[in-house]
Design a binder for these strands. Sequence first.
DNA 1: ATGAAAGCGCTAACAC
DNA 2: GTGTTAGCGCTTTCAT
Lengths: 341, 341
Amino acid sequence: MAGKRTRATIKDVARRAGVSPTTVSHAFSGNGTVAAETAERVREAARELGYRPDTVARGLRSSRLGVLGLVVRPLDPLDTAFLEGVDYFLRFAGSAALAAVERGYGLMLVPDPTRADAPAVGLACDGFLITEPVENDPLITMLTRECVPFLGVGRDPARPASPDYLDLGTGRIVAEVLDHLAAAGGSRVAAVLGTDRNEWNLDAETAYLDWVRARGQRPLAVRRAEVAGEAGGREAGEELFGMAEPPDAVYCQTGRHAAGVLAAARARGLAVPGDVRIACGADSDSEHTRSSVPPITSVDLRPVRLARTAVAVLADRVEGIEPPVPGPAEYELIVRGSTRG
Amino acid sequence: MAGKRTRATIKDVARRAGVSPTTVSHAFSGNGTVAAETAERVREAARELGYRPDTVARGLRSSRLGVLGLVVRPLDPLDTAFLEGVDYFLRFAGSAALAAVERGYGLMLVPDPTRADAPAVGLACDGFLITEPVENDPLITMLTRECVPFLGVGRDPARPASPDYLDLGTGRIVAEVLDHLAAAGGSRVAAVLGTDRNEWNLDAETAYLDWVRARGQRPLAVRRAEVAGEAGGREAGEELFGMAEPPDAVYCQTGRHAAGVLAAARARGLAVPGDVRIACGADSDSEHTRSSVPPITSVDLRPVRLARTAVAVLADRVEGIEPPVPGPAEYELIVRGSTRG
DNA sequence: ATGAAAGCGCTAACAC
DNA sequence: GTGTTAGCGCTTTCAT
């Protein structure tokens, strides 16, 4: 397979066209000045030889490879079995790749380049998209130090807001879901939160506490790791429904948690909706929210559009343009059976 | 943003550690032999300087960048608006990226590198995954000529079967769906096929013709471009249902076509299922098959697993290993309301 | 308008 | 075990 045939180089083309490598370079990059006739001859020679300028060599000089990196936090080392089920991620990554290609970039998914075992190619990217940076994200520290452009999709919760981060508007979203739960008849709303220290979780917690207190109630929040998935949600549900004063509505941060809470409620013989309303802040995993019985009310975070926006901003930055900073991301509450009896 | 700070080079480290660049290189690549103590000194100097070997420069010498390219056919130039809706693609790409990372590679979505306007970085990949190669795919011609490893996900219909292609087993799948339509009561089964000249379409056509003829019936096939989507399917449905002897079952190649056929049937007042059964060969787009009324029977092609397999084979090949050739891809028929009355 | 020469950062021979 | 010397393929001054 990996044969010996070596690609034609700029020298080969130069020789064949009877010019110098410099001229060939100019003819291709449009940088210097070449007589139209010479350029044609060069182009012809190149065609005959099947020559294409080598991107890597070019990148070595220009320190631009034409590649954008996508880092998915906080799942590092990438827990692929987990991620594969997460629609949100799949859609984000697919759409980002598409948007990048449209801008003439390649988009590469890379593991955290600050890790010792990271593939070296991770460092070669011209810029990075970091989904859900964590508190004091080490990658952000590193990129800032090395002056590599990046864009957080979600804020680094420990750093001040800045044009380096796309605002997810988590607080807004959570408040709307909580309002919906209340409108659906929930009078005592609990929350199942995640444990990753990112904007999504930290702002959600704040929003939940604010919302509950504004209504003069006592917060009732439990926490389960994202990767604990449905089993974690089930545990959380059992904990909540086993209380002396159990909640009649539960807000969850992930679709899997919500599915687990739903299972726990049903196992206790609670009607959903009826005895308990369940809703989820992120339609991260359609298998769990759309396909459960009843399907779970959730929020479409529009990952496809979000990715597109993120790539546009990052590409601008890589090219030295200071792009306008988009406002909080759009989203849509999708009301399903779990809150609509 | 794009500051001037320049990264430490191998020379800087060499100077600081009081050794030669070669020694530093060896210390990092583990290639030559370095005294343990020297290696430690080098490592320390590197740490102090924040040095990381430059992948691009390294790639220039080794002609290995550590990047796998993913080319999506036959949608070139990438029709992103279209692709974004195609779950199959999103899942395949996301999963492939994940699998690549696990193997220490980056995975990059690139437009057809044989196109003149393609981002040059496309050529820099160490190997290529080509989903659904088209007849006499020019990219395959080029890669073969340049001895670049590749793997077709699906055969190039015009070339002989070979280890260079993953077998989708299209014929098997189509036959099973047709059998299912018959079992569900269909006695005259029509087909709505696509127009892309790839394994999926060409083998499906053959399989359909074989199946119909084996039952002593006359084939009834219409064709609509994949990108025509639901509207195309609707047209096809109108054509079919307007016939003197209309079919009572329709096999479709894409979820969107199926959704269109369904709409056409309902517009005519036909009951689905009942008067007409509809099924689809590929659960390519869940919005259209899962969420239609009734939901449409379809086939899960397991893109997540398929991508994983493909990446494994390609990575082996890039590394000079001749991997075992996997058999036809797995799939699962998902029976839904459109064939289950 | 064209070319010669000097590298980009790294690694592979080949000395020592 | 370590250093010297040549480049990888390209771009870029700077001459001509």
